[in-house]
Amino acid sequence: MPLGTLDRTPPPFFRQGASALSKLMVCSALALFLMVADARFKVTQPVRAAIATVLYPVQLVAMGPVKLLKNAESYFESLKSAQASEEAARVKLALQSQRASQVEQLAQENARLRNLLGLRERITTPAEAAEVLYDAADPYTRKVIIDKGMTQGIEAGSPVIDESGVLGQVTRVHPLISEVTLVTDRDHAIPVLNARTGARSVAFGDPITRGGSLELRFMAGNADVQAGDILTTSGVDGVYPPGLPVAKVVSVERRADSAFARISCAPQALVDGARHVMVLKPVAVQIPARPAPDEVPPAKRGGRK
């Protein structure tokens, strides 16, 4: 058969119509038009909302197994965490029970000794519960704002503690809120007592660590201070009651070129995460005023009867 008699045109079923390049240009122009129209006139927003509404039940069904697995994993993690917390709480409760019995015995012994020596009774410090609202705006200080002020009887200079130890001191009082300077602030100082040795010193906020710790200054290089020592309030400043936990000695650096040791301490209170606190009355406010010379009996003035 001669080749000229063959029809080389494709059958109607295989005809492609416009070329691929033309289709690409038309689709690109349409896509660009839709993007511009959607960005400026929000023409596709109703369509998108309708499609999202139709597909929402499908999404819920598809996400069902995923949510079920996540909930199951969260349940077992929460159960494990709750069991660990319960075990830790039981241990802590047992320790506190033992300490409470010891404290009660010591309190009775202390009362007997005070009566024997004729000393005045130890002051019981009134307290006011408060909640930390937010940190102070100044990034160069370590201060927090609490939700109690003059209206609730808060006074400037009042000690502030949390469940772990001394948190700081009230430095500014407003009618409804108060500003508390933390013990780790670089301008804060607190007299402390080494519970192991009974030595007194002063703890300052450490500015080198940006308020994250405390420093015992002016301690001799041969002072009996060891890592792990607990520092409590000494009570000699007339502000903090004695015996409140303040810090724990972390490191002691004795340098040959200095007569003083560099002692770094970690605060016992949750200075970065305290939520609920107690505001105490300053000790000096609770101490009775000294009687006038005319009111003192002659025997106590050293005079003769």
Results as ranks from 00 to 15, higher is better:
S78Y: 12
I51Q: 11
T53E: 13
F13A: 15
Y56W: 09
I123S: 00
R210Q: 10
K23Q: 12
H174W: 13
P267D: 02
L55Y: 04
Q286I: 06
P65Y: 05
L95T: 07
A266D: 11
A259Y: 06
Q96I: 03
I123N: 00
E86H: 03
A247Q: 10
A269I: 05
V47W: 15
D138K: 06
L93W: 01
R120C: 01
D187Y: 14
L119T: 12
V202W: 08
R112Y: 05
G153C: 09
E215W: 09
P298R: 11
T171E: 14
A292R: 07
D206G: 04
T181K: 14
E253V: 08
D229Q: 06
V173Q: 03
L167S: 02
S19A: 11
I230R: 11
R48Q: 15
V43G: 03
A274Q: 02
P297Y: 04
D229K: 05
I263C: 06
A195D: 13
R275E: 10
L280C: 04
S97G: 08
L214I: 01
G235I: 09
A284C: 04
M150T: 08
R142A: 07
D224R: 12
R114L: 07
G205W: 08
A223R: 01
S74E: 14
E104P: 00
A220T: 12
N222H: 13
T44G: 10
M278A: 08
V277I: 11
A137T: 15
D272N: 14
D162N: 04
S251H: 08
A261G: 04
V180L: 09
H276E: 12
A72Q: 10
H188Y: 11
V61Y: 09
K300D: 15
V277D: 07
D229A: 00
V249P: 07
I190D: 05
G205Y: 10
R114H: 05
A227L: 02
G168F: 11
A127H: 00
L55F: 07
T181L: 07
S251D: 11
F13Y: 08
K80H: 12
Q152G: 02
A72N: 07
A223W: 02
E77M: 08
L244I: 15
V58L: 15
R120L: 02
Q102L: 13
Q108P: 00
E253H: 08
N194M: 05
T44L: 15
I145Q: 03
Y75N: 13
D272H: 12
R142H: 07
I177P: 03
S22W: 12
A247C: 05
A100M: 13
P139A: 10
L216P: 07
Q59P: 00
D257K: 04
L214M: 13
N71T: 03
V202M: 15
E87W: 02
